[in-house]
């Protein structure tokens, strides 16, 4: 029997899950409340065989004022994956770290801390990951506007002095072409009239 289909009744009996969404044969999503996520995760790891932490993702639902955290686990047989999801407030809510269970969580949590500003309690070192000396809004939050940031911090290059305005130049060329065509048409017309006179 499918691992995920058989897991569903066990997990839903044992814990108060908000939803168990069987997305495909090899993927399911479990949505829980934040207070029980550690217990569910322990159960998944110790008893259900989801021993590998593949990644941690975060989605910013700014209109609902929440972050959704997704912990994606792989089964020991590698035949299916499970997403464990729960929501936290966008500001001021911290999450317990997973570095005590999986060493790879260290870098994933650093990444999320830098990109979303989520604090992971008990993390050994939430130092910067890919950005350097970043004091602005964490960049993957929805309120961070890339274009506004660029306009504020950088200047657009003016380009060479002999550069022409592309739009104006195209307009001028079109007008020139039109005038030329018109002149040609008129010349032809006149010529035609002359031929007829002769």
């Amino acid at each position: 029997m499918n691992i995920l289909a058989s897991l569903q009744p066990q997990l839903c009996d044992k814990f108060e899950t908000q939803a168990f969404d069987l997305k495909r044969d090899d993927l399911a999503q479990v949505i829980v409340e934040k207070k029980i996520w550690r217990a569910v995760m322990d159960y998944l790891k110790e008893e259900a065989g989801f021993v590998t932490l593949l990644t941690i993702t975060c989605t910013d639902w700014i209109e609902e004022e929440r972050f959704e955290l997704n912990y994606i686990f792989a089964h020991e047989t590698k035949r299916c994956d499970l997403m464990l999801s729960f929501s936290i407030a966008r500001d001021g809510e911290s999450v317990q770290t997973l570095t005590d269970r999986w060493p790879q969580a260290e870098v994933m949590e650093r990444d999320l801390h830098e990109m979303f500003g989520i604090v992971f309690e008990g993390h050994p070192n939430l130092a910067s990951f890919a950005l350097e000396n970043w004091h602005h809004t964490p960049p993957l939050r929805r309120e961070f506007d890339t274009l506004a940031f660029v306009n504020e911090h950088f200047e657009f290059r003016k380009g060479r002095e002999e550069n022409v305005d592309v739009k104006a130049e195209a307009k001028r060329l079109r007008a020139l072409k039109k005038a030329k065509a018109q002149a040609e048409a008129e010349a032809k017309k006149e010529k035609g009239a002359d031929d007829a006179d002769e």
Binding site: M115, S128, F129, A130, L131, E132, P139, L140, F144, T146
Partner: peptide
């Protein structure tokens, strides 16, 4: 890392 950050996800 950080020498090649191009911000694809953003």
């Amino acid at each position: 890392v950080g020498y090649l950050h191009r911000g694809f996800e953003k």
